[in-house]
């Protein structure tokens, strides 16, 4: 009974270079990850929408002390503002808040979960 955007559909799209989000008809909010109902107003049935793949860095940090399971250090994690919504992902190539970035792929963890990977535009 899973109407609307699911994690599986979101992940499949990301692997194809497409970012999906959910748009709320009631309050006008758009979110960058699947939700069963609008997190801002509670309305059910967010409409799956294709998000822009380019935007600007909203905030970022470089992680020097990684969790177990990640061998590299000094990788950048960013929240990217796509205009209608924001998404979190990896950022390859140094960029600061306000810099233009674009989707450049995805990173995948040991369980097969994927998140977006951005590069400076």
């Amino acid at each position: 009974m899973s109407e609307g955007l699911t994690h599986a559909a979101w992940s499949d799209a990301l692997r194809e270079g497409v970012l999906l989000g959910g748009a709320c008809d009631d309050c006008g909010a758009t979110v960058g990850t699947p939700k069963a109902a609008c997190p801002h107003c509670g309305a059910r049935g967010l409409e799956p929408v294709e998000l822009p793949t380019a935007g600007t860095v909203y905030t970022e940090t470089t992680v020097e002390v990684p969790p177990e399971g990640i061998d590299e250090r000094g990788y950048q994690v960013a929240v990217v503002d796509l205009g209608v919504a924001r998404v979190l992902g990896r950022l390859d190539g140094a960029a600061e808040i306000g810099d233009a970035v674009a989707l450049a792929g995805h990173v995948e963890d040991e369980q097969g979960y994927v998140v977006p990977r951005f590069e400076p535009a």
Binding site: H7, S11, T33, Y58, T59, E60, T61, V63, V65, P66, P67, I70, Y75, V77, V79, V87, L88, G89, R90, I97, G98, V107, E108, D109, Y113, V114, V115
Partner: peptide, 26 residues
Amino acid sequence: SHRQYEQPAGLTFPGVFALLTKRHMH
């Protein structure tokens, strides 16, 4: 942090608060 939408990026808790704080600094 979110298992599907945040952890795969390698986000740590210092990283979470770094994201909030750097936006505040900005």
